[in-house]
Design a protein around this nucleic acid. Structure first.
Lengths: 216, 216
DNA sequence: GTATTTACATTGCACACAATAGGTAAATGG
DNA sequence: CCATTTACCTATTGTGTGCAATGTAAATAC
């Protein structure tokens, strides 16, 4: 059961003598990646401490050292995913015509929502739902909504606030729904280009002018 | 800790002497309802055997007797939810104008997707994702997709198949996404009427005529 | 009225999982 | 070159959780 099989028998001269900062960074990254990969592959439930350690090629002790425990590492995955997502969207693009901005937004958003990172975020948030009346400060779920709201507001400042709120909630639901239904239907699904263009159409139309559509 | 406190001290004459079929039916229903309620309130993870028994007012032995075990009862919840859903949609309504059919469909669908029943279905399906290569026959997830496909096809037979497939996937994603984002944002959310009307608009427009919208 | 089946409750157990505690080797700082 | 800190590993423990086994009273069958 030599869990460390791959990297033990190096001659002393060849061992790179990496600095602690290096070791720390790479190990942390590997553990984070292991969690995301595991949740995406086998789901939250089967993502156990041992499974994480196995995929990362370390022992559970290492995970504890770096993240304190399971809660700690899941929190870290959330933060990492948030960061990746906001990095992905932050491109300026002001001044572009609306249609292009919408298209770019949807494409960038799907880059995230279609990824294993959102899959992990989603399942973790689902399992950390506040047990009612034990909240201290805004929940993680609400924090993420705030981030989403900020991004959307910066990208489409011309829309009146109520309509913007509606459309941002709608876009979130569509993107999240596409991601989860894809996950449920099995991973053998290609990117839902046509579905995304339906969303793009709706956003463009509704952001463009106050043409009420139906609504009798 | 008298778990049976409520119904033990009845005088013999007042005890209704219910038939076994009655007892069986009501107990099974109470257990099923307990599972759905528990998943909706505290999530799948915390829906443990003891929790189910507590909420149903029975012991775990009763659940075992009726459903075999935890897998059995979750399966039963799925089947029950499928049944409720298809009962909800089955209204004929052929011959109505398209816009009305779409509106009725969306309303009826949300009746289900916004309920605790879909919340349970969703979480159960998510946790029973096939562990790759252990499938025998179509998975539960695929079975539900088939049902959805049938219903959609019966309700909107005039649409060409590829477009129908697209729209049914889209509708499923939107409804499921609305449900899950509502759940994540906390239960204090009113029904998303405006979001649903955006979906209604899209479906009506796309089912109505082949006006390609954007797509450059 | 007796036998059998059904609808539960109770007890004990086995296992998976995460956390705690303590150990070792390498790196850093002086 | 020595002391200390850092990055891990190993062994153990404790707890939650589902299940199998057994018991009992009521209902049904005859």
């Amino acid at each position: 059961m030599a869990t460390s099989g791959a990297r033990l028998a190096l001659p002393r001269s060849a061992r790179p003598r990496r600095s602690q900062a290096e070791r720390r960074a790479t190990t942390r990254a590997r553990i984070l990646a292991a969690v995301v990969e595991s949740i995406a592959e086998v789901g939250f439930q089967r993502t156990t401490a041992a499974e994480i350690a196995r995929r990362a090629g370390v022992t559970w002790g290492a995970v504890q050292h770096h993240f304190g425990g399971k809660d700690g590492i899941l929190l870290a995955v959330l933060e990492d995913s948030f960061r990746r997502f906001s990095d992905l969207i932050q491109e300026p693009g002001a001044g572009e015509p609306l249609q292009d901005r919408v298209a770019r937004f949807v494409a960038a958003a799907w880059e995230h929502f279609g990824s294993d990172h959102y899959r992990s975020t989603f399942e973790i948030l689902l399992h950390y739902l506040p047990d009612e009346s034990e909240q201290q400060g805004p929940t993680l779920q609400v924090q993420m909504l705030r981030l989403w709201d900020d991004l959307f507001g910066r990208l489409f400042p011309e829309a009146p606030v109520p309509k913007r709120r509606l459309l941002e909630r709608y876009a979130l639901a569509v993107l999240s729904g596409l991601a989860t239904t894809q996950a449920l239907a099995g991973s053998a699904a290609e990117p839902p280009a046509l579905e995304l263009s339906l969303l793009t159409d709706t956003l463009t139309r509704e952001l463009g002018g106050p043409s009420p559509g139906s609504q009798a």
